[in-house]
Amino acid sequence: MSPFYLFAEISPKPEHFEEARDAVMSIVQQTRDEPGCERFDLFENEAEHRLYLFEEWRDQADLDAHYEKPYTAEVFSKYENWLLRAPAVSKMQKRA
């Protein structure tokens, strides 16, 4: 499989915005160091209480391995109570 990109919009409840942001920040470097992770960048819109992840992965197996890491599972577990809704994730391929 060719490399692909993920763009995720994360919508924490306003009272959990900082905790949600800090949780993602705590795994940024670990994720970047994972095999197959080419990019893992966090952006935020504090005024609207939104977080955005832009990721690039070598293949689906590498992303699946990322989801199985204990630190990733911990963030997902915390998000169960912190989010307004499930993250909106778009998977994209680069063309040209």
Score class of each variant (00 low, 15 high):
S2V: 10
S2K: 15
S2M: 11
P3L: 12
P3N: 09
P3D: 09
F4V: 05
L6F: 12
F7G: 12
E9P: 01
S11K: 07
K13L: 07
P14N: 02
F17T: 03
E19N: 15
E19Y: 11
A20V: 06
A23F: 05
V24T: 06
S26H: 05
I27Y: 02
I27Q: 03
V28N: 06
Q29L: 14
T31K: 00
R32D: 08
R32L: 13
D33M: 10
E34G: 03
G36D: 00
G36C: 02
C37H: 03
E38S: 14
E38Y: 11
F40L: 04
L42P: 00
L42Y: 02
F43Y: 06
F43P: 07
E44L: 11
E44V: 10
A47P: 05
R50E: 02
E55H: 01
W57V: 01
D59W: 04
A61E: 13
A61D: 09
D62W: 04
D62M: 12
D62T: 09
H66L: 00
H66M: 00
Y67V: 10
E68S: 07
K69Y: 09
P70S: 06
T72C: 01
A73D: 05
E74V: 01
E74Y: 00
V75N: 00
S77Q: 10
S77I: 14
K78N: 06
Y79H: 15
N81I: 11
L83D: 04
L84I: 10
L84W: 10
L84K: 13
R85S: 12
R85Q: 14
R85A: 15
A86M: 11
P87D: 04
V89T: 08
K91L: 13
K91Q: 10
Q93M: 13
Q93T: 13
A96T: 12
A96F: 15
A96C: 13
